[in-house]
Amino acid sequence: MNKQIILKNQKIFTKNNLTEKVREWDPNRSKVAAGIKKGIMPNIKEDDKVLYLGAAEGYTISYISDILTKGKVYGIDISPYSMQKLLILAEKTENIIPILGDCNKPFEYNEIIKKKFDYIIQDIAQKNQAEILIKNSDIFLKEKGLALLSLKLSAISQKNHKKTIDDQINILRNKFRIINQKRLDPFEKNHMLILLEKK
């Protein structure tokens, strides 16, 4: 487990090395924290380069920048309104880099980044969530790199959740090996967190 993550009294904290601040990580707001509560350890190393798809206003990304003492995290989002708030966060910290772009078209921001990553985290409400992860991992992820996907079931279909899970996992199995998967039930409704490794 990472040194920066602290578990105490059934609560999750992260510690910043520079400012030595300890902050609580709320599992009701962040899906990665909810995954830790449910028993999925994200396995992020200190010097990883992380790509975060769907960064929004940067609640989760601020904790990940605490964990990465030597690495960097690239946050991508489509909305200019939430990007303004992410830009303010990026000015304060050293290792957050925000990019305005559409995750469905990774070749557009590939011109700006031009790098390979060790880790991809995805949190997007779209119908083709699995395909978006595969598109991005083809371009950006190293071999045997990890990916953490939070699958929003109600964004895909309202009807049969068991069938949609099977369909999505079948798509993912072409490119990934599945390490761990769990429902996030008390914290988020109809969500599933999957930890994957690239073949």
Partner: peptide, 18 residues
């Protein structure tokens, strides 16, 4: 490197919102 990307996104955000 970081400053360059920050400048690019700042310009893009302003362009979209204006």
């Amino acid at each position: 490197m970081k400053q360059e990307i920050l400048q690019i996104t700042k310009n893009k955000v302003k362009e979209k919102l204006e």
